[in-house]
Design a protein around this nucleic acid. Structure first.
Length: 245
DNA sequence: CAGCTGATTTCCT
DNA sequence: GGAAATCAGCTGG
């Protein structure tokens, strides 16, 4: 939707105060809010449908559990900034920092519904697949799959480490968050479900994942499963008893 | 749909 | 050196 005039229901930017509270509090309030990223290619916006709260020093599943590092430094900074990290050698995930400077809680943005820039989002998602499709029909990405999962959400929005530390409360920032549209004939508070966080080991019993009940863009739940030994084999005996690696 | 596996690199013990 | 806040492709039921 292009903003012609009087989008009365268009959400205002979330304030610093909104984020200056515990992550558990911020998490469920973020559901229904809109994350948007403006780039030279255009604007992509998603309505958040799934989030997870991470406490800092008190939460063994948090990246900040063992203190400040180069990677997680932004989490210890002021609220309302994006903490973007790189994982599994290929994926980015984005969090929004909570609580005052000095503490390190944050909310992981796990999924959303694309509400603007769907064509650009789909192009980014498809491009990450194969770059160019030779001869065959390009695989299309279903609308509901565009931002279904934390790494997919970052792909659809074009988020990477360059946005680590971005202030999402600043109107001049390329990455911003708008409040949920107030009820205009709709329910003021949609039904929210909660359950254990995805893919975490320590602290898996804490039900700190929140999502919009029944929303098709919410990612499927996967419990944490440690991978088995990757290389049980070694080079045949060469009589010197040495092994590679 | 459930389940398994490879990809790929950064960070920390 | 190993695990990681993941995803896509493939197999089999």
């Amino acid at each position: 939707m292009l903003g012609g005039h009087d989008l009365g229901a268009a959400g205002a930017l979330l304030t610093r105060e909104f984020f200056a509270r515990p992550a558990l509090d911020v998490a469920h309030r973020l559901l229904g809010c809109v994350l948007e990223h403006q780039t030279a290619d255009g604007l992509v916006a998603v309505m958040l449908t799934e989030v997870e709260a991470y406490e800092g020093s008190a939460d063994p599943a948090s990246h900040a559990y063992r203190g400040r590092t180069a990677r997680n430094a932004v989490m210890f900074g002021p609220p309302g900034h994006a903490y973007v990290y790189f994982t599994y050698g290929m994926h980015f995930c984005v969090n929004l920092v909570c609580l005052p400077e000095g503490t390190a809680s944050a909310v992981l943005l796990r999924a959303g519904r694309v509400v603007e820039g769907a064509a650009l989002a789909a192009a980014r998602r498809a491009a990450s697949r194969n770059g160019s499709v030779a001869g065959g029909a390009p695989r299309t990405v279903a609308d509901r799959e565009l931002a279904r999962g934390p790494a997919r959400l970052c792909q659809a929005l074009g988020i990477d480490r360059a946005l680590d530390g971005a202030d999402v409360c600043d109107p001049a920032s390329p990455l911003r968050v708008r409040s949920a549209r107030s009820a205009r004939g709709g329910p003021a508070t949609p039904p929210i479900s909660r359950g254990p966080r995805v893919g975490v080991n320590s602290g898996a019993q804490r039900p700190w994942r929140f999502w919009l009940t029944g929303d098709p863009t919410v990612s499927p739940y996967r419990p944490h499963v440690p991978r088995v030994r990757p290389k049980p084999v070694w080079a045949p005996d060469r009589s010197d008893g040495t092994m590679q690696q």
